[in-house]
């Protein structure tokens, strides 16, 4: 924790609430802490509705103000709280210091401008640069993301490229101003597996070369295991488990993480029946005064109903659960499924 000063970005107690139709407020994100260091890839995983996308949208200040608000917390980047900046100042950071890539590359690109125009646009917006310099730099960027025959691509329109190629262009745009942080929101969900592998490889390669920090949001445990260093598992707007990928995949502590891993069919081994987490994700009306997972949890006890556990643990492997804390490392007794189901 003495590294705290070097953190590139530090989210402290981020809360973001949406207004629901009956006027009450729903906690999409309810107190999330995150520290990001240069050169690391941090994965945020969870199912739909767990608030993983809202975290980064709040951080980028991209939430729709008519329905959502940032209800508390700080996002400290380079000594500044992003939530205290004016919109104008934020524009100077967005796309320059912190940039983002999205799930669907075709809707992230403008269909009526050429690839070249779109890369040059961001360069001209953030840097004093001449037309010819911008063109040259755009070409260089396309080469950097391994697009074949980049000279030709500069004058093409997004629809002329394949999905994987479009995502490479989006990544080139995101990297144009040499950001310190790259946020990737489900960057490979819309792509085929062989292309997904290429894009993941590219993200890892660029991280090594440019030493940028990456926040990768995904619902795919395999993707996290393949490229992330650290991961956060979210449920109901809070982080339920945090740690290095190695620790979490080897010995998941939280019943939700365990269930999630056991529910994935395996490509390596045969599973007779998949473990299922009963029920479905609940809407979290504020204030919440119980464990958010207790209704679906096989371990739930009285205390889980009465108060919400804290995120705590040793050596950076944190878990938000009353019942997991005293459970022995790696043992899964009483969970309703055996260890072989977890790793099989």
């Amino acid at each position: 924790m003495n590294q705290k000063e070097n953190a590139l970005l530090s989210l402290q107690g981020l809360k973001s609430y949406y207004e629901s139709r009956d006027g009450s407020e729903v906690a999409a994100v309810d107190g999330v802490d995150l520290e990001l260091y240069p050169g690391e890839i941090v994965g945020i995983v969870g199912e739909s509705g767990c608030g993983k996308s809202t975290v980064v949208r709040a951080l980028m200040r991209l939430l729709d103000p008519s329905s959502a608000r940032i209800a508390g917390g700080k996002a400290v980047f380079c000594g500044k709280d992003l939530f205290g900046l004016s919109e104008r100042e934020m524009c100077g950071i967005r796309g320059k210091d912190i940039s983002m890539i999205f799930q669907d590359p075709l809707s992230a690109l403008d269909p009526v401008y050429t690839i070249g125009d779109q890369i040059e646009e961001i360069l001209k917006a953030h840097e004093h640069i001449s037309e010819s310099e911008a063109k040259e730099k755009a070409l260089e960027l396309l080469r950097e993301v391994n697009i074949p025959s980049p000279e030709l691509r500069l004058n093409q329109y997004p629809h002329e490229l394949s999905g994987g190629m479009q995502q490479r262009v989006v990544i080139a745009i995101a990297l144009a101003c040499r950001p310190q942080i790259l946020i990737a929101d489900e960057p490979t969900t819309a792509l085929d597996v062989t292309v997904q592998a290429q894009i993941l490889e590219l993200i890892r390669e660029l991280r090594d070369k440019l030493n940028i920090a990456v926040i990768l949001i995904t619902h795919n445990m395999g993707v996290v295991a393949a490229i992330c260093d650290r991961m956060l598992v979210m449920y109901g707007g809070v982080v339920v488990e945090e740690g290095t990928c190695k620790e979490i995949f080897k010995a998941p502590k939280h019943p939700y993480t365990r269930g999630l891993l056991a529910a994935i069919p395996s490509i390596k081994e045969e599973k007779e029946e998949l473990y299922t987490i009963p029920g479905q994700v609940d809407v979290m009306k504020v204030p919440v005064a119980c464990c958010r997972f207790y209704k679906r949890c096989a371990l739930a006890a009285d205390i889980c109903r009465r108060s919400e556990p804290e995120l705590k643990g040793e050596g950076g492997h944190l878990c938000r659960c009353y019942m997991a804390a005293d459970g022995a490392e790696g043992s899964s007794g009483g969970l309703g499924f055996g260890k072989e189901a977890l790793h099989g």
């Binding site: 597996v193 062989t194 997904q196 445990m221 395999g222 295991a225 393949a226 490229i227 190695k246 490509i267």
Partner: peptide, 9 residues
């Protein structure tokens, strides 16, 4: 081989 497996090892 292209499918990422949930095992960082």
């Amino acid at each position: 081989k292209a499918v990422p497996v949930p095992d960082p090892e």
